[in-house]
Design a protein around this nucleic acid. Structure first.
Length: 120
RNA sequence: CAAGUUGGCCAAACAGUCGCUGAGGUAUAACAACCUUGGAGGAAAGUCCGGGCUCCAACGGGCAGAGCACCAGGUAACACCUGGGCGGUGUGAGCCGACGGAAAGUGCCACAGAAAAUAUACCGCCAAUUAACUUCGGUUGAUCGGUAAGGGUGAAAAGGUGCGGUAAGAGCGCACCGCGUUGUUGGUAACAAUAACGGCACGGAAAACCCUGCUCGGAGCAAGACCAAAUAGGACCUCGUUAAUUCGUGGCCCACGAUGAGGUCGGGUAGGUCGCUCGAGGGUGUUAGUGAUAACACUCCCAGAUGAAUGACUGUUCACGACAGAACCCGGCUUAUCGGCCAACUUGGAUC
């Protein structure tokens, strides 16, 4: 069951995105930025914000979203967070495999940060 | 065989596992789950034209503004397509073309050049008169005329070539070509061919303004229609007539109304549903047409998401995979694009 990706695991409303955007729990590198906020559910939820300004072509935006979703789907250890993944201009230069690796690493960082932040 | 032209088609293939999403089914109070079956493009792109659809406006007409501009046909429509004409270009198949009007008017043509549209006379050429010189043939200068052949300038120099003609020249005359006018013939037409006449009058630029003809109401699916919390406010009905030095009508009391509670209604925000994909639709065939296309018959249902699906992994094969992602729907145009296949045709070479 863990490696599915249902609607309950996504952010669907504009309000939910706004709520996450106001938080301070972030993880990032030169290509991507992840914002997160604790929710009251039993699982994590993912929202994608790939702007047209940073990634110009629709095909590239779609590809980033697919890689991100696939990566998120296969994560097991994430706590109950609302997560928004944003793209920075550098992502275009990455290949698909590099991008995947990059996102996987960010999830691990996020899990650690979250544990430290919310356990105290 | 090589090089090329035009038109059409494809856009790595197959298998397995996992995942997303539309529809149908099983099942259920409902969700979840399971099964079956669909799930990006030739440009989905740029948003440059043309339509459908929706709402708004509207008696009709004109002006303004914008667009279009050889002819005929096709189409729902077009700035598109087909066929034809004309011009340009290529050995050729072919390709390219803001292709109405400059004799309606106003204006423009830099620099150079004598002169840039009323033609003109710088050099040159020629005649006459005259002066000087003379080897008596003439030469040089001046004056006054003729000339547009030659020179030089320019993107462009006022028809071209040849012969005649002449003092030198000149459409001055003639022939051919070009141009114009009027006919005739062919063609639906654009236009072409041809005859007679004219005798060159009519330079370029319409992408300077402009004139002529034709077309055009506006906004867009965030169109528009429906359902509809919470909160604030509104209308109506019912209940309560009290907790009150409350407020209004009133001189005061009574009374009535407001302030209260509940309900109903209307508008309408968040949110949701519809619009939404069966269509100027695809496939096959026949007929008409040079063709674009049309008619008829049979047949098929082929994305519909909404924080927004069409993907990931593994294996095998090959030529090792370009440009690129639907968002109301069609018809075009333009731009991007690794490579492959088919048909017709052209040029060159080889062989028989």
């Amino acid at each position: 069951m863990l490696n599915r990706f249902l609607k309950s695991q996504r952010l669907l409303k504009s309000d939910e995105f706004q709520a996450v955007r106001g938080t301070s729990l972030t993880v990032s590198n030169t290509n991507l930025l992840i914002l997160a906020k604790k929710n009251e559910l039993s699982n994590a939820r993912l929202g994608l914000a790939i702007s047209k300004r940073n990634v110009k072509l629709a095909v590239q935006r779609n590809e980033i979203k697919r890689v991100a979703r696939e990566s998120f789907r296969q994560q097991v250890g994430l706590p109950n967070l609302d997560v928004v993944l944003m793209a920075r201009p550098g992502v275009i230069s990455l290949t698909k495999n590099e991008l995947r690796q990059c996102i996987d690493e960010l999830w691990q960082q996020l899990a650690k940060r979250a544990q430290r932040c919310y356990s105290s």
